[in-house]
Amino acid sequence: MPRTPRDPEGRMPLREHLVEIRKRVVRIALGLLVGAVLGWILYDPLLDALMHPLEQAAERRDALIGLNFDGVATAIDMRVKVSLFLGVIVSSPWWLYQVFAFVNPGLTGTERRYVYGFLCAAVPMFLAGAWLAWSVLPYVVEVLNDFVPEGGANLVGAQMYLSFVMRLILACGIAFLVPVFMVVLNLMGTVRARTWLAGWRWAVLVSFLFAAIVTPTMDVLSMFGIAGPICALYFVATGICFLHDRRVDRRRVAAPVE
């Protein structure tokens, strides 16, 4: 089918926009489907990994602690959710690229370079945050089970436990994207490094509040294990912004005045 001609200003007609949206949505859906199929295949080892913190807590306390599938369809429902969750994570580079490919025609050359850099940094940073949450999960489960009275059992609802783990992983993954946004906004000239540095106290406070929310325990070690890396990344991103601002200021001073 021939492409619809653009107007003199280079803007894409509405009909072509709708066709492009449909194409990108279909490709994103196919990527999620492939990731979900992989999640379905890997469900058993993934479920074993999810249950391992509970098994460790049960062994340490010598108590009955495990997952409770409290419905006829709970097992199959949990398998579908786990598969979709893993599909979203595995296919993140693909659907992030599709979003960029949709907005790409409306960006300048400089903006495209920034977005490419964002994509290259966002995926590993998101995965790093997810890995941190996964590493802290056993300690969180252990501390929470310390509140179970002696002789008591803790049969955790499978759906509730899965929702808790998903929230923890997604929240930490998204939190690790904040430094990437900071650098991109600085590269685009929107926010100077001094602005980020001036708000460091608020950044530290928000980081620890965030860690306290996603790890609802009295364990200080777990809270510092999440808040510490987030604060460190904030200051690293601020340092990168300072280096960029210094280069920009030098170019401005060296540029001839017209």
Rank of each mutant, 00 (worst) to 15 (best):
P45F: 11
L221D: 13
P5R: 05
C120G: 06
N104K: 12
F224H: 04
L47G: 02
L64M: 09
S222H: 01
V115T: 15
R252A: 14
Y161V: 06
S207A: 15
V180W: 10
S91H: 04
F181A: 13
L33W: 07
A73D: 08
D44A: 15
D62L: 11
F176A: 02
L96Y: 11
F147S: 11
M160N: 08
V148Q: 10
G129L: 06
E258D: 13
V236W: 12
P149W: 12
L168G: 00
V99W: 10
W196F: 14
M188N: 08
I169T: 08
L137C: 00
F102N: 03
F181H: 06
I89A: 11
V103N: 04
D48N: 10
V148S: 09
T195Y: 05
A49D: 08
S207W: 01
V103G: 06
L33F: 15
F147Q: 09
W134Y: 15
G189I: 11
M182T: 02
A193N: 07
A57N: 06
L47K: 02
G173Y: 10
D249Y: 05
I169D: 04
I41Q: 10
I230Y: 12
L84D: 05
L54V: 02
F102G: 02
R3F: 11
A254I: 02
M12E: 12
V19Q: 09
R79E: 11
G129M: 11
H17F: 07
K81G: 03
A63W: 04
L209T: 09
V143H: 11
C172W: 01
P5F: 09
A175F: 10
F85V: 06
G239V: 09
S135W: 13
M223I: 14
V204H: 07
V236F: 13
G117P: 07
L38C: 14
F147G: 03
P105I: 01
A158E: 00
V248D: 11
I174F: 15
L162W: 12
V214S: 00
P53N: 02
V148T: 14
F208W: 11
V191T: 03
I240C: 01
F210H: 01
G117R: 06
D70A: 14
L155K: 04
P13V: 05
F126G: 09
T195I: 01
F102V: 08
T108C: 07
R3T: 12
R247P: 00
